[in-house]
Structure formats: C-alpha cells, structure tokens
Amino acid sequence: MTVVSSLKQIHSLYSSFIVLAVVTASIIFTSTQATATEGDNRWFQIKSSLIGDSHIQDGQEILELDTPKRAMDAAIVPITIESKFEQTPDRYIKKLYIVIDNNPSPVAAVFTFPGNHSWKSLSTRVRINAYTDLRAIAEISDGSLYMVNNYVKASGGCSAPSLKDPAAAAAQLGRIKFRLPESFAAGDLVPTQLMIKHPNNSGLQFDQISRYYIPADFVRTIQVTYNGEEVFTVDTDISISEDPSIRFGFAPEKSGVLEVHVKDSKGRTFSHSMNLPEQRS
C-alpha cells in the first residue's frame, strides 16, 4: 500500500503532515550515506516516500513553475506556480506538492484544494540550501499526477538560509496580515497575499553557546476559509522562508469573512480574519 492510498483512508488534519514527517525522516536518514552526485537517486527516494510507485506525467500542460535561475538570497527565494487549466468541481488540482530535492527537508509544502474555488496563481517563498531541482507536482481530482521542475542554483558565498534577525522575529511572532486590492468586482479572481510573522526555524542548527540544537519552531498548517468554507489548506515545513507568505487567488461571490488559522510545531495557534464588504457586480 502506498502512502497516498493509505492517506485517503485517514483524512485527519495531520495526514499530510505525517507524509512530510515520513519523507523528512527517511531523507535525513538516507542522506547520511548519500553523496552530492546522487541527485536522481535522492529524487527517487523522495518520490517513493511521497507517492509510491504511482506514475507521474510531464506537467507542462497542467502547471507552470516560475523560479529564479539563481537563489539570490538563500533565505528568501520567490516561487510561483500557475495552473494552466480552469479549476472546476469536475476537474481540479486536489493536491499540490512543492519539493526541493537537496534541502534538508525536501517537501516544502503540500497544498490541498477543496475544488470549489477557482485559482490561477500561487506564490510563496522558500529557502534554498544548495544547487537543486525544485518541483511542483499536481494531483488532479481524477488521481492523475503531473510534475514540472526547474533547476535553481545556490546563492553566493555570503548568503545562508537562516534568520536575519532572530530577536526581531521572536518579538513579532504570530502577527498576520491579509493584503488584497481595495476594490474589486464580485466574481473577480482577487489576488490575495497572506503574511505570517514566524521565524520558521529549522532546528538543524547547533547552538555553540548552549551546546544544544536550536529547537525547531516552524509553521505546520495554514488553513484559509471564506465564510467558513475552505479555500485551501497547506502543510508547511522548514523549507518555507521565515515570515511565510502565500499569494493566492480566490473569487468571493458575496460579502463575507476571510479567515486564516495557523498552527505551528510547538502547538501554538494563530488566527486572523478580515471582512470583505459587498462588492459591486
């Protein structure tokens, strides 16, 4: 039985997180013996942990992945994924995996869409540790899988995928903002940015002063709803940049409340909501 088919039966809030944890654990375990030249092998390991033996098709007709050729700031690499077909209840992207092969924890995010909201474009920011393939894999509502990937070069010598100012990050932890245009027409696809102040600390760094590993502290789940109905849920990991940012589109038909619920690895929860007034049609 593959991980994915077993997931279908679990349907718990943490189902995808279990995938992340299993993949991370298996990669960290196996990578201790891996060498840099075994890039394909690494992807093979990630793939078998993530989706088992399922066949993945070329996704160029389904997705477009936009990444910089080189990570300029290793801690903040903007990526955008466009869906190339209209999302309808009959056929939609059910899951979207973002994988960064050579990061310590390669599965950066797993988005889940309920299929009742259309979207075109999804952006976030990730950390890139080394020269790596970055992949977006879509699982369509009929169960078929499609993948696109880009090669991203690492940043220069002085850049690191670390927090720039841990004290400042800690001071503002949990602040959340929605940013969207002041006015739009009912039914429009509204470009919306969700911003969360969180250090998203990897826990992979050794603190030479305390002689302990700095404990991991990262955003685990983000769920966005509109009038209580799910827009998307995303399970995230340490490859997502500090202060996670997600740009998404959704089309509110009537006035309502846009809401986000965030849960982190330490069990903290944060919420934020915003009233969207009646829009002219």
Partner: peptide
C-alpha cells in the same frame, strides 16, 4: 549576536567556501 549568527550558519558557510 555574532556567536549565535555564526553557529546558525556554520555548515552553510563552510560548505560554500569548500565549493
């Protein structure tokens, strides 16, 4: 803040310099 900043970046910097 230097000790903490260096500790957090140790492996990245040493790997970058090797490369």
């Amino acid at each position: 803040n230097l000790a903490d900043a260096l500790a957090r970046r140790e492996s990245t910097y040493l790997n970058n310099m090797k490369r």
